[in-house]
Design a protein around this nucleic acid. Structure first.
Lengths: 175, 175
DNA sequence: GAGGCCAGGACACTCAGTGTCATCAGCTAC
DNA sequence: GTAGCTGATGACACTGAGTGTCCTGGCCTC
């Protein structure tokens, strides 16, 4: 994974072959594919942890919390680990921003997260239609926040930026 | 495009090769790639029309419309053409639902639409942060609505389902 | 009818991704 | 300590997506 990111950053994602990554890591191409299902996946191995932490955070929300509040409780444990990964996130974001196929992968990871959140909401007793929309709204806030967080310099700002984005979403959707 | 959809439906997306599609259409593989940039794109050629209609609908919204209202005005011309495409949309959705790489493409098309909507909002004088969130909220409603529309039988229900989803989003985000 | 233009064919090539078998290190058992 | 098992990696061949390049033939214009 480290070998891949260095190469992507230096010479570009498209221009880097799996054979190069494997060689840099002292492995064969075949072994690369035993760890990552495809070339894009090497940049998204953190997504299981993200989902795990999000659901963990949601579990701590009070049982009577409103659906969207329960969803947003997932951000806390996530924002925590993001603090020390700001520099890394910026490099990674730059690589992704330059490649549509990586953006696709990022979007589907967010979508899968939204689906997991929806299930967690249903398990809390939230009705299905409501659950989808609360989950999607939370992911929208997260997505927008993430973009703002990598675009600025304060590594610790994630939590604050989340609240700002959430408030903006609330004011924009207020009838 | 017709040849491709028939083959995808009959034997599966993964199992269908470009050579087969090209042969069924009386062309060569090389010519396929002169019309479609990749294999997934053959299912998404309608996205320019979607974007075009959406922006057209937004242009008709009153200048003093709230951002999200302006966004949702884009649905009208879209819902119109959807009526006669319900059967097609169902086949297409079934194919997409079975293939993660097609879901990725669908998500990035929605994202591009959201970006175009954001630009249109900015052009209407909406502030940038507000514009992103209104655009993303509108796309969330559209995405959820589309899924509901293909899951039921009334081809003309799109407009109504949109309003229901929008109301649900509003109630879920109300503080 | 000579010249120019352009859509499509022919063909070779790269690279992502997969199936399959061989190898080798480490562990367990007796 | 050796026989046998297991799991990780290498070797290698193969398929299919996608691209570069050159060629051909139809059509349009003067």
């Amino acid at each position: 994974m480290n070998a891949a990111i260095v190469l992507f950053d230096e010479q570009g994602y498209e221009e880097t072959t799996i054979a190069q990554i494997a060689e840099a890591a002292g492995l064969t191409k075949r072994t690369f594919f035993r760890y990552f299902s495809d070339k894009r996946e090497v940049l998204f191995s953190g997504s299981e942890e993200l989902e795990h932490r999000w659901l963990e955070g949601m579990a701590k929300a009070p049982v009577d919390a409103a659906p969207l509040s329960a969803v947003m409780a997932g951000v806390d444990p996530v924002a925590e680990i993001f603090v020390e990964r700001h520099a890394f996130a910026r490099v990674r974001s730059r690589i992704i921003a330059a490649n549509p196929e990586l953006q696709e992968r990022e979007l589907i990871k967010l979508q899968r997260l939204a689906e997991a959140i929806k299930v967690a909401l249903r398990d809390r007793g939230v009705e299905s239609n409501q659950a989808i929309l609360a989950a999607e709204a939370g992911i929208t806030v997260f997505h927008v926040t993430f973009a703002r967080w990598v675009a600025q310099d304060d590594a610790t700002a994630f939590r604050r930026l989340t609240d700002e984005s959430l408030n903006e979403l609330r004011s924009v959707t207020a009838a």
